[in-house]
């Protein structure tokens, strides 16, 4: 067993278990809060992108283009240094708030594009039928379009969730204590790169595998009983 202890001393990892747990909690919190907020803003962006009015369509398209064509790390720096300078209420924020704000800003366009594709996948006849029975825009959205769009967006949304969780690792650079930070802490205190970075790599991999399995289950579920009987 000595070769294993030489390569990967799990006893050191065990000593830092509570730090890893704390980091993991913060990672999941940042990703979870960002996901919920991005879904809300993403829906607004999707509706703006689909709008025929230039006043809605143009700013949304410019925002999406800017986010897609610049690195997340630079966006994080812009939020981290820009928000306190430009927004008075952001002066008292802690690092976690800036991290979540940056992640929401970054993932909203991607989620917006997914929702837009989902809305466009709802057949036009559905909307015309809703108009024919006298529903207004809000009712059509609430009862006809969004429920059907949701089913079509679920698998890509899970993929985007996996991306979001991986992206939280960059928050370690603005000193949010998330999962990667726990590994960096271990390495800086004990100079044990294997125990530090292989542990967090494994942790991220397990989260990814959980989402992957969930995604496969959802695809089977959405395909319905007839499809599953054939397969």
């Amino acid at each position: 067993m000595t070769w294993l202890l030489d390569f990967y001393n799990y006893r050191i990892v065990a000593q830092y278990l509570d730090r890893f747990a704390e980091g993991l909690r913060n990672t999941l919190t940042a990703a979870g809060v960002s996901l919920v907020l991005s879904l809300v803003f993403g829906t607004i962006i999707a509706l703006a992108l689909l709008s025929k009015r230039d006043a809605f369509h143009r700013p949304a398209a410019a925002y999406v283009a800017f986010i897609r064509a610049t690195p997340l790390l630079v966006q994080i720096y812009l939020v981290y240094y820009g928000f306190p300078a430009l927004l008075p209420f952001a002066k008292s924020w802690n690092d976690m708030y800036f991290g979540i704000a940056a992640l929401v800003l970054n993932s909203t366009p991607y989620i917006g594009e997914i929702i837009r594709a989902g809305i466009e996948s709802v057949p036009g006849g559905q909307i015309e039928a809703a108009k024919a029975v006298g529903m207004n825009y809000g009712q059509r959205l609430r009862y006809i379009v969004l429920p059907q769009a949701f089913a079509n967006t679920l698998p890509p949304l899970l993929g985007q969730t996996a991306v979001l969780i991986k992206d939280t690792s960059l928050l370690s650079i603005i000193t949010v204590f998330e999962f990667t930070s726990a590994g960096i802490l271990l390495n800086s205190e004990r100079v044990k790169p294997n125990e530090s970075f292989l542990t967090i790599a494994l942790g991220y991999l397990l989260i990814y595998l959980a989402i992957l399995l969930l995604s496969r289950g959802v695809k089977q579920w959405l395909a319905g009983p007839a499809w599953n009987a054939q397969a």
């Binding site: 991986k166 939280t168 370690s172 990814y208 595998l209 992957l212």
Partner: peptide
Amino acid sequence: GTPFLVQLYV
């Protein structure tokens, strides 16, 4: 399944 930052550290 792992962030690029973590891969870079590895």
